[in-house]
Amino acid sequence: MSGNRLDKIDLAALGPMTTAEAIAFLNGEDIDVLRAQQQERDEIAEEADRYKLVSPPEWPSLEFNWDLSASAQRFALDGCKPESFATSFSNGLRLGWVSLKEFDAKLSRINRRALVELWDVGDKEKLAMAIAYISRGKPITPPLVHPIPAEKQVCFGGGNHRYTVAKFSGQIDLPIYADPGEAERIAAIVTVRWA
């Protein structure tokens, strides 16, 4: 195997690898970067445990670092792979800003949360993780919104927990993403300042 990438790397120096690390290594990824990312995820998860079931006034100070870059748009849909996003949204998503109060009034009941049900609806782990992630100033992608014209409402295609943290942390405006083909129908339901 002369000339192989494995010939140039001291595998012993990398130490024991998890299965995920071994696969990443074989795919040419940097193990040190992967380990640093995992350590950060572990720290965020540990911090998130402190916020679980905590009322919003006791949350840390939250400064939203909205990532509006084209490369981050796929994160509007939870767990969307780059290839899948490129196939579904070849022209990308359209960015707009809404008044959170008006938007909340037009949001489908299946997505909207009241304070009394803050920790009873949705995934407690994801909500606590979103609080911890945002508290660190990490870049966060706006939620993806779809219209429900028959009911004059909107719903999420991804980002329910991001919206929930924004709502209960007192944000005034919320950035949203929309499929460009649905933008006009969304704007007929809620006022959107399109970028």
Rank of each mutant, 00 (worst) to 15 (best):
G158D: 12
Y133H: 12
W119K: 12
P175A: 01
D120N: 14
D104K: 13
V116E: 15
G122A: 05
S169D: 06
P149F: 05
G159Q: 07
I148L: 14
K138M: 11
I172L: 07
I134K: 04
P142K: 05
A132I: 06
G122W: 03
G137S: 07
Y177P: 00
G158A: 10
Y163V: 07
G159T: 09
K126P: 02
F156K: 07
V154E: 05
D179S: 11
V165E: 07
K152D: 10
A150H: 10
P180Q: 00
H146T: 01
G170K: 07
L118F: 07
A132W: 01
D104F: 08
N111S: 14
G122H: 03
R136E: 04
K138V: 01
L144R: 08
A166P: 02
T164K: 01
P143V: 03
E117T: 13
L144A: 05
P180F: 00
C155W: 05
F168S: 08
L107K: 02
P149C: 04
L174R: 02
I134V: 15
G181L: 02
L144C: 06
W119R: 09
V121F: 12
G157M: 06
G158Y: 09
R162T: 14
W119F: 12
R136D: 02
D173V: 14
D123C: 12
S99R: 08
D104L: 10
V121W: 03
G181T: 02
Y163K: 05
K124Y: 01
K126T: 08
F156A: 11
P142Q: 07
V145M: 04
A130L: 03
D179W: 10
L115H: 10
V116P: 00
G122T: 06
S108V: 07
I140M: 13
L107N: 01
Y133W: 12
D120M: 11
D173Y: 11
P180N: 01
V116W: 01
A150E: 11
L107M: 09
I110R: 11
I172F: 00
Q153E: 14
R109E: 09
V121H: 13
K101T: 11
K126R: 15
S108W: 04
L100V: 14
P147V: 09
L144H: 03
L174T: 04
K101D: 12
A105K: 14
A128F: 09
E117V: 12
R109A: 15
S108E: 06
I140D: 06
H161F: 05
T141C: 13
K124E: 13
A132F: 03
V165G: 03
G170W: 13
I148H: 00
N111Q: 10
N111Y: 06
D173W: 11
F103Q: 04
F103W: 10
V145I: 15
G157H: 05
R109L: 15
R109P: 00
K152V: 10
L144E: 03
Y163N: 07
S108L: 04
Q153R: 15
F156Q: 05
P180E: 01
